[in-house]
Amino acid sequence: MSTSSPEAVKKLLENMQTDLRSLSMECKKKFPPVKEVSVRVVLA
């Protein structure tokens, strides 16, 4: 399915953003050094 309608693209990006947030939160829980570095990067 290769549709490039604006709605489909928006939905894809929203889904990817949700997945990345979930992955980030899980990584921060399981790997504390990642959390520390991510906090430093955000504050920089």
Rank of each mutant, 00 (worst) to 15 (best):
M1H: 04
M1Q: 04
M1C: 04
M1G: 12
S2C: 06
S2G: 12
S2Y: 12
S2H: 13
S2F: 13
T3Y: 14
T3D: 15
T3V: 14
T3M: 13
T3E: 15
S4P: 01
S4Q: 04
S5R: 08
S5G: 14
S5I: 01
P6H: 06
P6S: 08
E7T: 04
E7Y: 03
E7M: 03
E7R: 06
E7H: 02
A8F: 10
A8T: 15
A8E: 15
V9L: 14
V9M: 11
V9E: 12
V9C: 02
V9F: 07
K10W: 05
K10E: 06
K10Q: 05
K11Y: 02
L12E: 05
L12C: 04
L12D: 05
L12P: 00
L13F: 12
L13R: 13
E14L: 11
E14N: 10
E14Y: 07
N15I: 08
N15R: 15
M16W: 03
M16R: 08
M16H: 03
M16I: 10
Q17T: 14
Q17A: 15
Q17C: 07
T18P: 00
T18S: 13
T18E: 15
T18D: 12
D19F: 03
D19A: 14
D19S: 09
D19T: 08
L20W: 02
L20F: 09
L20K: 12
L20Q: 09
R21V: 00
R21T: 00
R21Y: 00
R21N: 00
S22T: 08
S22W: 01
L23Q: 01
L23G: 09
L23V: 01
S24N: 11
S24I: 04
S24M: 05
M25N: 10
M25V: 09
M25I: 08
M25Y: 04
E26Q: 14
E26T: 04
E26N: 10
C27L: 15
C27N: 07
C27H: 08
C27F: 13
C27P: 00
K28I: 08
K28V: 06
K28C: 11
K28F: 11
K28G: 04
K28N: 09
K29S: 12
K29G: 04
K29D: 12
K29I: 10
K30Y: 07
F31Y: 15
P32K: 00
P32N: 02
P32M: 06
P32S: 01
P33E: 05
P33G: 05
P33A: 00
P33T: 07
P33H: 02
V34C: 12
V34R: 03
V34L: 15
V34K: 07
K35H: 05
K35N: 09
K35R: 13
K35Y: 03
K35W: 01
E36F: 07
V37E: 01
V37C: 02
V37S: 00
V37N: 01
S38C: 11
S38Y: 04
S38G: 06
S38D: 14
V39M: 10
V39E: 15
V39P: 00
V39C: 03
R40F: 10
R40L: 15
V41F: 06
V41E: 09
V41G: 05
V42A: 15
V42D: 12
V42S: 13
V42W: 10
V42H: 13
L43N: 14
L43D: 14
L43C: 06
A44V: 06
A44W: 06
A44N: 12
